[in-house]
């Protein structure tokens, strides 16, 4: 491969790993800024990916390409949102420990995906296969632009553009709308928000459901470009997304850079064998696999000292308390 070929290959791969992180971390942002810690992102990703891939698996005889992908995206978002309601109910209505209910969802999701896949597929295996008819070799016109074309508009998926669209919409919603202001108020000081007539429970439900929809979508977006089957796991991506959220300081633009950073790390880990320079170093493959996680730890160690989570994040809101 030529140098420019390697660069555009790495760039495309980085997108495949970064975009799901970006989408899921933005989801986590909506939940945390409304005041609910959502450690269940990993489980919700699994449910979203499972539902979406299963949908593709069933429908791919009848349709293919971008229409099928768009429908699968809707299925993933809806299933993620419904699944997240369980967390919302426990965290908001029942005021239960949010870490525990999130952990329960994380445990439920892979078991459910494996059980259902094995029960309903005639071959009885847990992997759900799908045909990848979604890759765009080159976007018309845009793909022919020099430099930018190969980087952004060749060998890509519409999910990349959906991810960036979600980023922009999220930033606008969070900072420029009434809903965003109320959401942030509920995460910082729910009593104050309540005193001016904001329904804290409703806003928090909205925050958790948004995180569910985005995490469900993120699960599908993670699986599609990197595999040809879904094996009841998203490789800890939901947890990485939480790290991205913290590293990104709960702010959309910083989350973008954090997810690009981790996506790049992950890309190196997954593709170092095609980069002659890295292969020549003769480092054990396991070191490359570890690298994204080591980098996360180092980055968190450096950046967490003064990090400020939304003040009321993780605390159940009780109307009666002062």
């Amino acid at each position: 491969m030529t140098v420019s070929g390697i660069i555009s290959f790495l760039f495309q791969q980085t997108m495949f790993f970064s975009i799901p992180l970006l989408i899921v971390a933005l989801g986590g942002m909506f939940s945390e800024r409304s005041g609910v810690v959502n450690i269940a992102l990993d489980g919700i990703m699994i449910i979203g990916a499972f539902a979406g891939i299963l949908f593709i698996n069933f429908m791919q005889d009848k349709m293919s390409g971008q229409l099928l992908l768009l429908l699968a995206i809707l299925v993933s978002m809806a299933s993620g949102m419904i699944f997240s309601l369980l967390h919302a109910f426990a965290a908001i209505n029942m005021r239960s420990d949010q870490t525990i209910s999130g952990t329960a969802l994380n445990m439920f999701a892979p078991a459910f995906a494996i059980y259902t896949a094995r029960m309903i597929q005639s071959n009885g295996v847990q992997q759900v296969e799908f045909l990848n008819t979604f890759r765009i070799a080159s976007v018309p016109v845009l793909g022919d632009i020099p430099v930018i074309g190969p980087l952004l508009f060749q060998n890509c998926y519409i999910t990349t553009y959906i991810g960036f669209a979600i980023l922009i919409v999220s930033a606008i919603v969070l900072y420029k709308t009434k809903f965003g202001l109320r959401l942030r108020a509920c995460g910082e000081h729910p009593q104050a928000a309540d005193s001016v007539g904001v329904n804290v429970y409703k806003i928090r439900y909205a925050g958790v459901m948004l995180s569910g929809a985005l995490a469900g979508l993120g699960g599908l977006v993670y699986v599609i470009p990197t595999s040809t089957n879904f094996n009841a796991t998203v490789a800890g991506y939901g947890f990485l997304a939480i790290a991205v959220l913290i590293f990104g300081q709960w702010k959309p633009m910083r989350i973008l850079f954090a997810s690009l950073f981790f996506g790049f790390m992950k890309t190196i880990a997954a593709t170092y064998t095609v980069i002659p320079f890295l292969v020549n170093l003769g480092i054990d493959t396991y070191f490359f696999k570890m690298m994204p996680f080591v980098a996360t730890l180092l980055v968190l160690a450096i950046s967490s000292k003064n990090s400020q989570a939304p003040r009321a994040s993780g605390q159940p809101y009780d109307k009666g308390s002062r």
């Binding site: 800890g236 790290a243 913290i246 967490s304």
Partner: peptide, 27 residues
């Protein structure tokens, strides 16, 4: 140490250590 002195949430740090531990042990 990360929790006590550097304000890193123990859940995130522990999860990272899980993956690092798994890969280290396999290696």
């Amino acid at each position: 140490i990360l929790k006590a002195y550097l304000n890193v949430h123990e859940v995130i740090a522990s999860i990272m250590m899980n993956y690092i531990g798994m890969y280290t042990v396999n290696m």
